Structures are given as structure tokens and as C-alpha cells.
Amino acid sequence: MLRVLFSAKPQAWDEYEAPLSDAFAKAGLTVELSRNHTPAQTDYIVFAPNGPVRDFAPYVNTKAVLSLWAGVETVVDNPTLTQPLCRLVDPGLTRGMVEWVTGHVLRHHLGMDAHIRGQDGIWRDGVSPPLAAERPVTILGIGALGAACGQALAYLGFPVTGWSRSPKDVPHLQCLHGEDGLQEALAGAQIVVLLLPQTAQTQNILSGHSLALMAKGACVINPGRGPLIDDEALLAALDSGQIAHATLDVFRREPLPADHPFWAHPRVTVTPHIAATTRPDTAAKIIAENVRRGEAGLPFLNVVDRQLGY
């Protein structure tokens, strides 16, 4: 009998208990899933950063900590966490992100806001969008989420450049890496999508300097992490017209404070961290597979590199 501790916010238990129990059974695992296992009893922890477990030191028999979130920046530096930490790479979450990113790229590409908001009797037929092939898109971060979004946009005809810290090869994308590659990826980009993890190296990757490299009137879309953008630099670029619009789903502080300038800025769209949410049914299958692999002596999926931070 395996004992799996569920450590997330209390209301998540009602969402996950049945999908996890079902997924464990289908994986051939005999599991006692509970919110109340003692540390010494716990074989695995299903973890969210908003759950009760903060100190992992007592969990001396725990074989792995399995995150329900894609991002692990709030836990990866926890000095008590010595067990393997696995982030969530979930097809349901990936599809949600692809749909959100594709929708907002198309929204900006087609100039939809002018017609959606301009219901004032004025026939605005003076400007028509170019074809997708004439609209270069850059995605900063081409892990599982960024690669999937980039391939979806490439399928629609956009020329997509993907940038990562280390070399990668994603079909249908021009892949660049490193500092020189970042300059090249941003140069002339008309739409930039941020899907990087939050690390010391990626903080403020969109600064005044990097925003100035983009095509004048470009759009920024950030469903990644709030600290990827220097907020003051973005506001200045919006005010100058260097950036035409920013659609932001993530922020340094969430919920975004009511007095934050983003709320009132006419060239900013705020969405409440909804770009991609974890789906219990699909996430539970990933969790169960990792437990199955652990019990079979196989490598865990999506183990976090503590030095890289993701």
C-alpha cells in the first residue's frame, strides 16, 4: 500500500480526489490518498505551493514531490526539499496555453480591438491586416509550452522565431539561443510572447533595451511569469508608442492591485492568470504515471534541475 499525501489548498481536494484515485487504479497502483498522512508514512507528495507543506525535512521516506503546477519558482530553492521535484507537463495545460496564445496573437494580428471597441457608428475600413506570413512572431521560451504555441502559430503561416537559453531544435521554428540570439530574436519582432520560467537569469528579460529592439508598434503577450517584464520600462514603451499594446496574464503581485497602472492604461489588457490552468483529469494521469515509474525503478518524468530552476 502506497501512501500519497495531497498538499494543496483545501478546495482543491474536492477537484482532485476522484481523478487521482481513478488514475492510480488505472495505473495498477494500490494507493491510500489522503491530506493527513504523517511525514514518516508518506511515499509521495502531490504538491501545490499554496498547500500546507513548507518544510520537507520530516518526509524522510518520501520518494518524490510531484507538483500540480508547471512553475516551480516558489519551491525550487527551498533548502529542506532534498527529494526529487517533478514539475507538471500536462497535455491539458499545454492545449489551454496554445488556445489562449493563438487567440491573442490573432486578436492583435487582425486588429480586432478597433472593431470590438469601436461600436460608435464609424466605418473603420482604412486599415487591413497583412497576411500572417508578413507578421514575425517571437516566442521567448521554447520548452513544452512555448514549442507547442510556436508550432500552432507556424501552422497558421506566421514566421516564428523561438529563443531559449540553451540550444534547441523545434520543427517549423527558427531557433536561437544565448545573448546574441536574444538580440536577433527580438530585432524587428512585431509580436513577442513570453513563456520563460522565472529565474534570476530571466527576470526583466523584457527591459527598456530589449523593448527598443522590437518593431515600433509591436505587441507584447505575457502568459509566462510577471517578473519577466520590467513594468516601468513597459509602461514607458507603451506611452512612447514603441509598444502598441500589451496583453498580460501574469504579474509580480497577484491579484494585480486595483491601483496598478496596468488597469487604467488604454494599451494594456489584463487577464487574471487564466491562460492555462491545470486540468485535474489530465494532470492526475501524469501524477499517477510518475508514481508508477518510481515504483518500477524508472526515471521520473520532468524532474526539475535545481541549478537551472526549472
Rank of each mutant, 00 (worst) to 15 (best):
F6G: 11
G157V: 07
L186M: 03
P91F: 05
Q201I: 01
T282Q: 13
V170I: 15
L81D: 13
A27F: 10
A23Q: 10
L196S: 04
F6H: 07
P197K: 04
P84H: 05
D281A: 14
S34T: 13
D14A: 15
P227I: 03
A236E: 14
A283Y: 13
L81S: 09
L173M: 09
E15Y: 10
R292Y: 08
R35N: 11
S166M: 10
P257E: 13
A133S: 15
G121H: 08
G181A: 04
T277P: 03
T74N: 15
G126E: 08
W13F: 10
A288T: 13
G143K: 03
G143I: 02
R124S: 13
H104Q: 07
V75H: 02
D113N: 04
A264H: 09
R107M: 11
A27H: 07
P84L: 06
A236Y: 07
A284H: 12
S210Q: 01
T247D: 13
I243E: 10
R253Q: 14
P223D: 08
S210V: 02
A18T: 12
L29R: 11
I116Q: 15
L235G: 11
P84N: 14
G141Q: 03
D120A: 00
Q198G: 04
H209V: 03
V270H: 05
L195T: 01
T278M: 10
V250N: 01
H177K: 07
D180E: 12
Q11P: 13
D249V: 01
A12L: 14
M1Q: 09
N204D: 11
A12W: 15
L182F: 04
A25W: 10
L301F: 12
R279D: 13
R135E: 14
D120S: 01
K9F: 06
V76M: 11
A212K: 08
I191T: 15
E295Y: 01
C175A: 12
P10C: 02
A25P: 07
L206K: 00
D281N: 07
S210N: 11
V31L: 06
R225N: 01
T199D: 00
D169K: 11
A57W: 09
I116Y: 14
T102E: 08
R279V: 14
V60H: 12
A276M: 02
L301K: 08
F24H: 03
P19Q: 05
L213V: 00
P79Y: 06
A189V: 02
R279E: 15
G96T: 00
I205V: 04
A144D: 04
A148S: 07
R252F: 03
V170M: 11
Q83Y: 06
N78Y: 10
T202R: 00
